[in-house]
Simulated assay, not measured.
Amino acid sequence: MTRVVPQSGSANLVRNKAIGPRGSDPLSRLLAHLIVRGGRTTEIERATSRPWASALFEGRRHIVRLRLHGPNAAERAAAYHEGIESAEFALPGHFVADIQVDASGQDQYGPWVEISALTIADW
């Protein structure tokens, strides 16, 4: 805790500064890309984002579950497995360091895909 002594000048105050540039959470832009990849009838069932950091980088870990609807939903869900690791995503101030399909399946509501991604702040 920082203590301020009224008799001291402002030069003695401790100033808290952010470490590095702090951008907004890129989850919304990532979701937009994933919906485009899945097609117009793609629905976001669940999306979470939490901070992530290593000794050299900071970013966010994202988990997204998508539900695909429509006549060719099964084929579009299968397409997520093909090439998602090498797909390009435009996320201003961030880049996708890792993305993969963790699970997929089909239930009474149709096919679903669960994706995890790691985005890193681009300093």
Rank of each mutant, 00 (worst) to 15 (best):
P21Y: 07
P21E: 13
R22K: 11
G23C: 11
G23M: 13
S24Q: 10
S28L: 13
L30V: 04
L30Y: 03
L31K: 07
L31T: 01
A32Q: 12
A32S: 15
A32R: 10
H33Q: 09
I35P: 09
V36Q: 06
V36A: 12
R37Y: 07
R37N: 01
G39F: 02
G39D: 06
R40N: 10
T41G: 02
E43K: 15
E43A: 13
I44H: 04
I44G: 01
A47L: 00
T48H: 06
T48D: 10
T48Q: 02
T48Y: 08
R50V: 06
P51I: 03
P51V: 12
W52L: 06
W52P: 04
S54E: 03
S54C: 02
L56H: 14
L56A: 06
F57H: 09
F57K: 14
F57E: 11
E58D: 13
G59M: 04
G59E: 01
R60P: 05
R60Y: 12
R60H: 12
R61N: 13
H62D: 07
H62L: 05
I63K: 15
I63Y: 15
V64G: 03
R65Y: 05
L66M: 05
L66I: 01
G70I: 11
A74F: 08
A74I: 08
E75M: 06
R76Y: 07
R76G: 02
A77L: 02
I84N: 01
E85I: 11
S86L: 15
A87Y: 03
A87S: 10
A87L: 03
A87F: 07
E88M: 09
E88W: 05
F89D: 02
A90E: 13
L91Q: 00
L91T: 00
G93C: 00
G93K: 05
G93F: 05
F95V: 12
F95S: 11
V96K: 00
A97Q: 02
D98K: 12
D98W: 14
V101I: 06
V101R: 11
D102I: 09
A103T: 06
S104I: 04
Q106M: 13
Q106F: 08
Q106I: 14
D107W: 10
Y109L: 15
G110V: 05
G110S: 03
P111L: 01
W112H: 03
W112I: 04
V113A: 08
